Amino acid sequence: MASLHYLPPVKPSAVALGTLFTHTTNLAVMAPLFGESYQKAMNADSKQEWIKSKEAAKTATLWGSNVIGSGAQTYAIAALLTQTGVLTYKGAAYVGALIFAATSVPTVVSQLFQERRPAEYIAIRATAGLIETVGLSVFLTWWGIRPAHDLLR
């Protein structure tokens, strides 16, 4: 059975702020979906009617899963930065770029050649992916990711 002591310690405030950073980036990409849901809520006869609707459940699920995913992504990137000993912005940008290459580039290539998505869509998704990886890595390095007790060693 795995033990939690194998997970690298990360400053809780870095995880909280990184989650907010990533969640905000994701919301910017998903804004059209939330805007559509907001319009349906405004057009509903009552707030209670909308709250009971499928759109409300879908929006709440999407929002909640986005927060959880943002938190997991933030911890994972912070843990990688900690384990690799990255202390500079340049190093953080390199690690973020490697994460982007491993997680987003295959999707971009697939969307470009196999799915034949519009270039604007691919550019927006790629930009969001860069912000979520490279931007988050640099942000976490700026904020500091090591807990105080690790700095004393």
Rank of each mutant, 00 (worst) to 15 (best):
M1E: 07
M1W: 15
H5Q: 12
H5E: 13
H5L: 10
L7W: 15
P8Y: 07
P9F: 02
V10A: 06
K11V: 02
K11M: 08
S13C: 04
A14D: 06
A16Q: 09
A16S: 09
L17T: 12
G18C: 06
T19N: 06
L20A: 15
F21Y: 15
F21G: 03
T24Y: 07
T25N: 15
T25L: 13
N26L: 09
N26H: 14
L27W: 06
L27D: 04
A28S: 11
A28F: 10
A28W: 03
M30Y: 13
M30V: 09
A31N: 06
A31R: 12
L33T: 14
L33F: 15
L33G: 12
G35M: 08
G35A: 10
G35P: 05
G35Y: 09
E36D: 14
S37Q: 11
Y38R: 07
Q39N: 12
K40M: 11
A41V: 05
M42G: 01
M42L: 15
A44N: 06
A44Y: 07
D45M: 10
E49W: 05
I51E: 08
I51S: 08
I51G: 01
K52G: 04
K52C: 01
E55A: 12
A56P: 08
A57M: 06
T59C: 01
A60D: 09
A60C: 09
W63K: 07
W63Q: 14
S65Y: 13
S65V: 13
I68T: 11
I68Y: 12
G71I: 07
G71C: 13
T74M: 04
A76G: 00
A76T: 06
A78M: 04
A78E: 00
A78C: 10
A79S: 10
A79T: 03
L80Q: 08
L81S: 02
L81Q: 03
T82I: 03
T84F: 08
G85Y: 13
V86F: 01
L87G: 11
T88M: 03
Y89H: 11
Y89G: 14
K90C: 04
K90A: 12
G91F: 00
G91Q: 04
A93R: 04
A93P: 05
G96D: 01
A97M: 14
I99S: 01
F100G: 03
V108Q: 08
V108A: 11
V108E: 04
V109T: 05
V109E: 02
S110D: 06
L112A: 10
F113E: 00
Q114Y: 13
R116A: 11
R116Q: 14
R117W: 02
P118I: 00
P118K: 09
A119W: 15
Y121R: 10
I122E: 03
I122W: 07
R125S: 11
T127Q: 00
T127A: 12
A128L: 02
G129V: 02
G129D: 12
E132A: 10
T133D: 01
T133P: 02
G135L: 03
L136M: 06
V138A: 07
L140C: 04
T141P: 00
T141Q: 11
W142M: 05
W142G: 00
W143D: 00
R146T: 08
P147W: 00
L151G: 04
R153E: 15
